[in-house]
Simulated scan of single mutants.
Amino acid sequence: MLAVDLLAHRGAHVIKFKEAAAWSILWVVIALVFGGIIFWAYGVEAGTAYTTAWLLEKSLSVDNLFVFALIFAYFKVPREYQHRVLFFGVFGALVFRGIFLGVGVAVVERFTFVLFIFGAILLWSAWKMLKDDDEEMDPSTNIGVRMLKRIIPLKDEYHGQKFFIKEAGKRYGTPLLAVVAAIEAADLIFAVDSVPAVLAVSDEPFIVYSSNAFAILGLRALFFLLSGLLERFHLLSKALAFILAFIGVKLFFQAGHEVISPSIPHIPTWISLSVIVVSLTLAIVLSLRRPAPVEPADGGDHQDEPQDEPQDEHRGSPKH
């Protein structure tokens, strides 16, 4: 599927809404067909687990899109190059998720108590998502960009889709390389939340990785489909925080059942699926019916006073 997506988008061009919508629908259909095969081949329990894990990862991936949009705005990435950058972001996410999921499944099989730690991570992530809802993230502090600057000097100008250029016999990185580094670092951070969340649904490696893969593969098309509309779904982050908190509690119940007493109940997978669907639906509907208030550029105070400091040309990025 990754090869198909790569071959279908080889040249640098701006992804239009219709193209993004067609690809988004295609990826969703493929993911659901694959889920149908799992229902048919392995039964209702496995099929429900896949569907829940896929929808969970798909919803969490939307939070990635806010960060991607912020990174693109900060580095002023031309729209025709964004698709190329996101390809490497998707590839990196597949690799990181594969490594993290493999390690996570192996650890859970040997040390069940680690589920308590995973649950705590998700509760912390949920609280942080709510707390940071109105704060801006500065991509210049991205660990990937900071590490890259220590390895290779970076130029300020874009040179088409090139990541490296040579001047006077010396190799330099382009801003596009810095953007890829920032995207990959974001992928790594998101994997820390994503892996514990999906392991709360299933510990079967085939289920958890295939659901992650199909959720991630449609991420590029979804970005261009929702580009410019992300800010309208202002309640989505709250829904995602609630989902993470619910999954964290589910992990505590699961760990208690395995470690403390079998009398502690499991939360069935179908309940998790219902919570995810209802939460996302409510967040989207309420966001569209009750748009976020538009704040004045100066915060509403001292409207007649001139600004003392000019804005950094790389700033002015959207809120996360």
Rank of each mutant, 00 (worst) to 15 (best):
L2A: 08
V4F: 15
L6Y: 13
L7I: 05
H9C: 06
G11C: 06
G11P: 07
V14M: 04
W23E: 09
V28F: 08
V28I: 07
I30P: 02
F34I: 04
F34L: 04
G36D: 03
G36V: 00
G36K: 00
I37A: 04
Y42E: 14
V44K: 07
G47Q: 00
W54D: 09
L55H: 11
V62L: 11
V62F: 14
D63M: 01
L65W: 09
V67I: 13
F72T: 04
Y74Q: 00
V77S: 01
L86P: 01
G92K: 05
F100T: 00
G102M: 03
V103T: 08
V107K: 00
V114R: 02
F118V: 10
A120I: 05
W124H: 13
W124I: 15
K131C: 13
K131L: 12
D133T: 12
E135L: 15
D138P: 07
D138T: 01
P139M: 02
G144E: 10
G144W: 12
I151A: 04
I151D: 00
L154D: 02
K155H: 12
Y158G: 06
Y158H: 02
H159M: 10
K162F: 06
K162S: 12
I165V: 11
G169M: 06
K170H: 10
Y172N: 08
G173V: 09
A181K: 03
A186H: 11
L188G: 02
F190D: 04
F190C: 07
F190P: 11
S194F: 06
A197L: 14
V201C: 10
E204K: 05
P205A: 00
I207H: 02
A213S: 11
L217T: 00
R220Y: 05
A221P: 15
L222K: 01
F223L: 00
L226A: 09
H234C: 06
I243F: 04
F246V: 13
G248K: 01
K250C: 12
F253A: 02
H257M: 10
E258W: 14
V259C: 14
I264P: 09
P265I: 02
I267V: 13
I271D: 01
S274L: 14
V275D: 03
T281G: 08
I284W: 08
A292Q: 10
P293V: 01
E295A: 11
A297Q: 07
D298G: 14
G300Q: 04
D301W: 06
D301T: 06
Q307A: 14
Q307I: 12
Q311M: 11
G316Y: 07
G316M: 04
H320D: 11
